[in-house]
């Protein structure tokens, strides 16, 4: 996913800081889909995602006067979203219900989906929906921090450098978490493949 133009964001932030509420509304509209994907894939619950997203933008609006532009607004708002979601997940613990969104019909036009289902690969369309369910379960077995990097790198398409800025860890830490998370997911799906009834 492309990072949005920072100069446009800077103008909207400056206008918001001067009291232009409509400018902040534009930022909300712009970033809601992106942040929704981030928070949803970390929580796997649509209702929790909705509440968290409201809180994220509420906090961002209250704190925007203190935003000095040392980082991009993109990084800043993502930091808020990730931190608030991690705090929420710590409080939620292991007691949660999956509340997954439906897969949009646009998936059938996805190039990778077509490659997966039409070429010889371990995945066929008939198994794909079951695999997606298992993948969601596997994601929830990861720790919150590992799930965060998997979400940001693989699902959101962020580069390692951006993830390290958002999480305030080194790029090496981001890479090692990704490596470990990938192994965990592979092992879980391989186990499912060997023992499909579980």
């Amino acid at each position: 996913m492309e990072q949005p133009r920072s100069d446009e964001d800077q103008q909207l932030v400056a206008r918001t800081q001067e009291g232009d509420v409509a400018a902040f509304d534009q930022l909300v509209v712009k970033y809601t889909p992106r942040l929704y994907g981030l928070v949803y894939n970390m929580t796997s619950n649509h209702e929790d995602t909705n509440d968290l997203l409201q809180d994220v933008f509420s906090k961002a609006y209250k704190s925007i006067r203190g935003f000095r532009g040392k980082s991009s607004f993109y990084t800043w708002i993502h930091s808020i979203a990730v931190n608030m979601t991690l705090n929420f997940l710590k409080k939620r613990g292991r007691r949660f219900n999956l509340s997954l969104d439906d897969v949009d019909a646009s998936v059938h036009n996805d190039k990778e989906f077509l490659e997966l289902t039409q070429t010889s690969s371990p995945v066929r369309e008939a198994d794909l929906s079951e695999l997606q369910v298992r993948l969601n379960e596997a994601m929830m077995k990861l720790s919150d921090e590992h799930r965060a990097v998997v979400t940001m790198f693989h699902i959101q398409g962020m580069p390692h450098a951006e993830i390290s800025k958002i999480l305030r860890v080194s790029e090496g830490t981001v890479r090692s978490r990704l490596f470990y998370a990938n192994r965990q997911l592979q092992n879980y799906l391989d186990e499912f493949r060997k023992n499909p009834v579980s």
Partner: peptide, 23 residues
């Protein structure tokens, strides 16, 4: 039976972008 590799995992994860909230 082939095992999942990093590329398969990455592809499956990217497909999660199509999980969208209600219209």
């Amino acid at each position: 039976m082939e095992n999942f590799d990093d590329k398969d995992i990455a592809t499956l994860l990217r497909l999660k972008r199509h999980e969208q909230p209600p219209p």
